[in-house]
Amino acid sequence: MFGFVFGLGDYGAWALFTLTRAWLAARGRLPRNLMAFLADAHEKRGVLRQVGPVYQFRHLELQHRLARR
């Protein structure tokens, strides 16, 4: 496993992000389609705001509450 992750270092942060996202989705800790989830939370539910390429919580208390889970 270490060799696989070490080999991904040549591809930079994107490869590590993709690997981590797949691992967390497989364990049920992250939605399988993360970008669709974020778009829904931003456009339809208004929970997130988009500042450039970054999503932020609109309400700091909601962020803290979810972090405690």
Rank of each mutant, 00 (worst) to 15 (best):
R45P: 03
R69A: 13
D40M: 11
Q63R: 14
L16N: 05
A39L: 12
H42Q: 13
V51N: 04
A13S: 07
Q50I: 05
A22P: 03
D10H: 10
R49N: 01
F17Y: 15
R32C: 03
H64E: 01
F6W: 07
A15N: 09
M35N: 15
H59L: 01
M1N: 09
P31T: 12
G28D: 09
R65W: 11
T18H: 10
A15Q: 04
Y55A: 01
F37Q: 11
T18S: 14
L19F: 13
P53C: 00
V5R: 04
A41E: 14
E43P: 00
L30F: 12
R58V: 08
G7D: 06
G12S: 05
V47T: 03
W14G: 12
Y11Q: 12
A36G: 13
R68C: 03
L38W: 05
A26R: 15
Y55T: 00
D40L: 12
F4M: 08
Q63W: 03
P31H: 10
P53S: 02
Q63F: 07
W14T: 15
L16P: 04
Y11R: 15
W23C: 09
Q63A: 11
G9I: 00
L19H: 07
R21S: 13
R49D: 08
D40A: 10
R27G: 12
L48M: 06
G52P: 00
A39F: 05
L38C: 06
L60C: 03
L66R: 01
L38V: 01
R29F: 14
V51W: 02
L24M: 15
E43Y: 06
E61L: 07
P31K: 08
A67E: 05
G12A: 05
L16V: 07
F57W: 02
E43T: 02
A15C: 07
Y55D: 03
M35H: 15
F6Y: 09
Q63H: 11
P31S: 08
G12F: 03
W23T: 15
Q50L: 15
K44R: 15
M1I: 03
L66I: 10
R58S: 02
G52L: 01
L60T: 09
L60A: 13
W14S: 14
A26C: 11
L24V: 08
L38I: 07
L62D: 09
A26W: 14
F4K: 12
V5G: 00
G7K: 05
R65C: 01
Y55E: 02
L16Y: 11
Q63I: 02
R32N: 00
Q56F: 07
G12C: 02
F17M: 12
L19V: 11
V5L: 09
A13Y: 06
N33I: 04
R27W: 14
L19N: 04
L8K: 11
R45G: 06
A15K: 02
L34N: 02
R69Y: 12
M35D: 15
A39C: 06
G7L: 06
N33A: 08
A67Q: 12
H64F: 01
Q50C: 09
G12Q: 04
L24G: 09
G3V: 00
P31R: 12
V54Y: 00
A13Q: 12
H64V: 04
V51L: 08
R21H: 03
